[in-house]
Design a protein around this nucleic acid. Structure first.
Lengths: 105, 105
DNA sequence: CGCTTGTACAAGCGAAACCTTGTGTTAGGG
DNA sequence: CCCTAACACAAGGTTTCGCTTGTACAAGCG
């Protein structure tokens, strides 16, 4: 659909720490300092990463007093999923399903 | 699973031209020059992009005389798909399905 | 063999990415 | 009102990235 927006999403996902942050924020909203305490970088760096993620539509931002709470916004991944599906022939869907259902063996 | 390999994949996908190349190579294998003719960059630059894609496991390389034919290797996207699924609650699967089935309306 | 075609390797350059330290800015508490 | 806590903005440095030009290598052909 929107190529420019997709570009922001893919660029945001290219950074390992940002992917780790998304995993951290998938169930519970967290504040910037709370997130920063889990990484070996400064609060300012975390703030910048969150700005990138928010700009790509991958997290939502909610104010709570002086804090800002972030949470994953999975709709932001729709474009990525669509891109994958473009490259994903039917035969591989079966492989994907097999991998998923057997991953705890 | 393999975080280092995933990193290569996400980094490879961050570049718009590389994503475009993958779309180009999803059905038919193409040579480097053939691919280069569709972009506004030199053969060498295309060669580097293909090297990145191949290093990430996103394309296969087959030799045909002096040419090298490249083709999408969708298994390389399994890690990405798994990452998305980690962030994707059940409610959004339904949205995804709706988007996919109605996209030609 | 030499020549051409197809491609990879190498050096270098400008721009972008990521991080740091330093400094606002905003909201709430005593 | 200060004061503090939580965060964003800004400037600067280092590394990485994408591209170019130049060159080397490999395969087929006369």
């Amino acid at each position: 659909m929107n190529a420019a927006a997709d570009d922001d999403v893919f660029k945001a996902l290219a950074e390992p720490k940002r992917r780790e942050m998304l995993r951290l924020l998938r169930s519970d909203a967290m504040s910037v300092n709370e997130i920063a305490s889990r990484f070996d970088i400064t609060q300012q760096a975390v703030s910048l990463h969150l700005k990138v993620l928010h700009g790509a539509g991958l997290v939502s931002e909610r104010r709570d007093g002086t804090r800002r709470l972030y949470l994953v916004r999975p709709e932001g991944l729709l474009g990525v999923n669509q891109f994958i599906d473009e490259l994903w022939p039917a035969a591989l869907r079966r492989l994907k399903h097999a991998v998923e259902t057997n991953r705890d063996i």
